[in-house]
Amino acid sequence: MSTLVRIHELTKNFQRGSELVQVLQRLDLEIPQGDFLALMGPSGSGKSTLLNLIGGLDRPTSGSIEVAGHDISKLNDTALGRWRADNVGFVFQMYNLLPALTAQGNVELPLLLTSLSASERRQRAAAALQLVGLSERAQHKPRELSGGQEQRVGIARAIVSDPTLLLCDEPTGDLDRKSGDEVLDLLQALNDQQGKTIIMVTHDPRAAERARRVLHLEKGQLVRESV
């Protein structure tokens, strides 16, 4: 399988007041197309930071991140935004749905940036909602949904524009076991059946078991662990 993400000597520091926080240090990582990678590690170890860098939400202090052959650290803000819209889907721990919009509206949101017509957008969003098993909740607002349902809407939003890469930051961190399992089933199916490449940050070993690979992040370095 070809390599989708190639990270080379990635370093990320944060300046907090006068203190320099060194989060990632010369980190190397390759993620093949179609991988399902679980990223574990103690709190504050830099898991979210790494995920944000891969997703082009933040820029490295040094080193390079290539996704599908493009060095995304070289893109300007606008180009990076466009790149994210086309290539990456994000799933957050707190779902981060827009409370004013219905499930359907939330899923359509990324499509507003495309040239699709309103009816095409509606169809695509409906298809994504069907995939996550929430067709009959399409017109509900987030606060009328359970946490597990909200997260499935979040996943529908992440996949609606058909990105190659899905980045999930503790997607089950706020869910009970049953809802968490449903979400993991869904991610696994997306990986197995649609070939989505998934990187999932998690604290939960049970969630990590679903992945093809598990990596541990400690002291700014990756510690490989076989599955």
Partner: peptide, 14 residues
């Protein structure tokens, strides 16, 4: 604030 962050994440420009 967080909603605006989400929109920007999805690719909405500033």
């Amino acid at each position: 604030t967080s909603e605006i962050g989400v929109m920007k994440t999805l690719g909405f420009s500033s």
